[in-house]
């Protein structure tokens, strides 16, 4: 299934204010992989994700989704394949009911209303909030909002899920529910986050960004356990790898 391959070649991007957010990012992600993108604030994670979803275009370099280069022309096609979950669900849930929000994407692609309904119901069912379909988004809890935001993306039937900080501002239980949900997905997943424990559980591969460059790219276990590297990139070891604060017993993987 070669069309799920994501290839980024030497991406460079400078914001209008002159800040060089991406400075030559290259990687290749194949079908079904789960990749965590980590790095300190301002390392370029969100900018990179914006490129993958075709919200921003690189000044230099190229992105290919499958065989298709990401250009303004191929955008509608790419956007159907790449589903982007934004950091703040309030930005993603802009309609007045959850149902209309989830239906927004399919309707834009002019699907017949029966198909729209089917997709909305199945996406909401997948994330477990079908009972909230007629609610206004502002009445949802943080976890429910996140689930709804993911449903809006699932309704587009994407092959690739791109997520920006999916666990931010979630309580522990909602976070756990989300991780379990994501584990069940067969999509290719690209997750930018500070939640290193989630990366540890969810992603077999990690890309570390610093100052708009890829510092390392490899198996999660190896990278996240490298205390020196983590320190250098403004990160720290996942809590799960730290010793127990009470009995001080070191954990082993």
């Amino acid at each position: 299934m070669s069309h799920h391959i994501i290839q980024a070649d030497n991406l460079k991007y400078k914001y209008p204010d002159g800040r060089q957010a991406l400075n030559g990012v290259t990687f290749r992600i194949t079908h079904g992989e789960s990749v965590g993108i980590v790095g300190a604030n301002g390392a370029g994670k969100s900018t990179l994700l914006m490129h993958l979803a075709g919200v921003l275009f690189p000044d230099e370099g190229e992105i290919r989704i499958g065989e298709v280069p990401l250009t303004r022309k191929t955008l509608p096609l790419i956007r159907q394949r790449v589903g982007m979950v934004f950091q703040d669900p309030d930005d993603q849930l802009f309609m007045t009911t959850v149902y209309d929000d989830v239906a927004f994407g399919p309707r834009n692609y002019k699907l017949p209303e029966e198909e729209v309904e089917k997709r909305v119901i199945s996406s909401l069912d997948t994330v477990g909030i079908l009972h909230l379909k007629d609610r206004p988004p502002y009445k949802l809890s943080g976890g429910e909002k996140r689930a709804a935001a993911i449903a809006t993306v699932l309704a587009m039937n994407p092959d690739i899920l791109v997520m920006d900080e999916p666990t931010s501002s979630l309580d522990p239980k909602s976070r756990r529910r989300l991780i379990t949900l994501l584990q069940g997905f067969t999509h290719t997943k690209i997750i930018a986050t500070h939640d290193l424990d989630m990366v540890f559980e969810l992603c077999e591969r990690t890309i570390v960004l610093k100052d708009g460059r890829v510092i390392t790219d490899g198996p999660t276990e190896k990278i996240l356990c490298d205390a020196e590297l983590m320190e250098e990139c403004g990160l720290e070891l996942p809590l799960g790898l730290l010793g127990c604060p009470v009995c001080n017993a070191k954990k082993t993987i």
Binding site: V55, P76, G83, Y109, E113, E117
Partner: peptide, 23 residues
């Protein structure tokens, strides 16, 4: 800034200036 993010998330779901409602 929020409006800009909202716009982006609308674009990611195929928004092209028109609003389609259901039946």
């Amino acid at each position: 800034e929020r409006a800009q993010r909202v716009y982006r998330s609308m674009c990611c779901r195929g928004f092209a200036g028109e609003y389609h409602t259901g039946r």
